[in-house]
Nucleic acid binder design. Structure first.
Length: 464
RNA sequence: GGCCCUAUCGUCCAGUGGUUAGGACACUUGGUUUUCAUCCAAGUAACUAGAGUUCGAUUCUCUAUAGGGUCACCA
């Protein structure tokens, strides 16, 4: 049997880092087995639907370099891959369940449901549906249907017994059926709930491995029950630990930047994001810290998964990102920077000459402008002390005539500093401040060489 | 609160029925460096608690505790 995995994101506005974390693991399992990796859009909640959100998901997947085999934008043998386009399918299958008494019509109003709920809460019982409509007579049902009464369809959960979810990373997880609610399968608007949609589609799309976040573990018995109600073979389940905020709650946009694309915009490399995500809840068998997505896809295994939920640590991501930036060639780095991180005032030629000076100083691509702006913008005025001015006038004179190279500049300035009985520290600090407008800068001599004699002297003249 | 999951340095991960419990990030210190950064070296820092099994438990079992997830006509 061909291994098929999937991710099933909802178009709610952002492509989530958690989706990438799950996606790369699904991709790996599919690839290793010569199977397919599918993206299915679960857009059955019309109230939360956000225009354009689907494209953002594809854009994020492409930026991260996850090749998918079937999806709404490229179609495939089990199309459509968007749930809102599959409504007749769910209706058809849910009828099958009704015919077999595995599901039933429920005509309860929202108001009645709310009453049942608050009554249960008041008695400190768990709020759940009281199964009021479960034993309606066929006659009653027909009458309600004839009068076009709004209704949902619910799963008839067995009242006794145990449902076991076989999870490959956790082992069997048992749930008492008596604790499971009669879940709504089909909403009154005709859309399926997640539970129906996910099971029907995973079955129809021949998904063999359901690798998803731990937040689904509690609802997995419902899914198992639905599979059993249909008489379908169960897929393999793997519930992975969710990534958390620093305060250990489930990672959320309230407390973290969870958007994949905003990481791109903040100057993170896809390689770094992938490497960082790979290290969440999993470790390289050879204990490597830095490795490519390609390598990950080849060697990822479910048995090395850690069950403890990891914390998103920006410091670690920063280190990984810097490490990838440093591993790029100068030409590659210039290309990456050109994708929106270099102001128009900086020409391609200038960029090429600056890159070697800033490469080992960049944590993110976005740091470039901060570090290099003095190359293409005049630094703002800074206060100079009397000592500084004395240093600068000497420097100016020497720089006017020395050979214009790192060696020429240093060979001229350093002996002069010594001759005056000065120290290198304060002398170069003043020069740096005058030339770059900053106390901290890329290597000064090289920077001046790039800047050109004319500009350097002009900046010194202003200060003296 | 019910149900479910989890428990090794601050963080991410190794690891074992007998180890000086290992690495990385971060942090501290030192070296290189005209600044910063890089690079190099060193250092601080952890097996949640109790009981049981065992000659011996961080490791296996149970309980407690803690953290998390989930309890919708949201996914």
């Amino acid at each position: 049997m061909t291994v098929r995995t999937r991710i099933a994101p909802s178009p709610t506005g952002i492509a989530h880092l958690g989706t990438a974390y799950i996606a790369m693991r699904n991709l790996a399992i599919a690839r290793q087995n010569g199977g397919q990796f599918v993206i299915r859009i679960e857009d059955t909640d019309r109230e939360r639907y956000v225009e354009g959100a689907v494209d953002i998901i594809f854009e994020a997947m492409k930026w991260l370099g996850y090749p998918y085999d079937e999806a709404p934008d490229i179609s495939g043998p089990y199309a459509p891959y968007t749930q809102s386009e599959r409504l007749p399918i769910y209706k058809e299958y849910v009828q099958q369940l009704i015919a077999n008494k595995k599901a039933y019509y429920c005509f309860c109003t929202k108001e009645r449901l709310e009453q049942v709920r608050s009554a249960a809460l008041a008695k400190k019982e768990l709020p759940r549906y009281d199964r009021h409509c479960r034993h309606l007579t066929d006659e009653d049902i027909q009458k309600q249907l004839d009068s076009k009464a709004p209704h949902v369809i619910r799963l008839a959960v067995p009242e006794t017994g145990v449902t076991i979810c076989q999870d490959v990373v956790r082992g069997p997880v048992e749930f008492q059926n008596s604790g499971i609610d009669d879940q709504v399968l089909l909403k009154s608007d005709g859309y399926p709930t997640y539970h129906l949609g996910v099971v029907v589609d995973d079955h129809l799309m021949k998904i063999t491995h359901i690798i998803r976040g731990e937040e689904w573990l509690s609802s997995s018995p419902k899914h198992v029950l639905i599979y059993e109600a249909f008489g379908w073979e169960l897929p393999i389940f793997a519930h992975l630990p969710v990534i958390r905020n620093k305060d250990h709650s489930k990672m959320s946009k309230r407390k973290n930047d969870v958007s994949i694309l905003s990481h791109r915009d903040r100057g993170y490399l896809p390689e770094a994001i992938n490497n960082f995500l790979a290290l969440m809840g999993w470790s390289h068998p050879e204990k490597k810290d830095i490795f490519s997505l390609d390598e990950f896809l080849k060697i990822f295994t479910l048995d090395r998964i850690t069950l403890t939920a990891p914390v998103y640590d920006i410091e670690k991501l920063n280190w990984i990102n810097g490490s990838y930036i440093r591993s790029l060639t100068d030409v590659e780095l210039a290309e990456r920077l050109s994708a929106g991180f270099v102001p128009s005032a900086c020409s391609g030629e200038l960029l090429a000459s600056i890159v070697p000076l800033v490469k080992e100083r960049l944590v993110t691509l976005k740091d470039f402008d901060d570090l290099a702006s003095f190359f293409y913008l005049e630094p703002s005025a800074v206060e100079m002390t009397a000592d500084d001015k004395e240093y600068l006038s000497v420097a100016k004179e020497l720089l006017a005539s020395c050979a214009w190279s790192k060696e020429g500049i240093e060979g001229s300035l350093i002996p002069a500093v010594k001759d005056h009985g000065w120290k290198n520290g304060p002398f170069f600090a003043a020069l740096r401040l005058a030339v770059t407008g900053k106390k901290i800068s890329p290597p000064l001599s090289e920077s001046m060489v790039i800047l050109g004699r004319e500009k350097v002297l002009a900046r010194l003249t202003l200060k003296v």
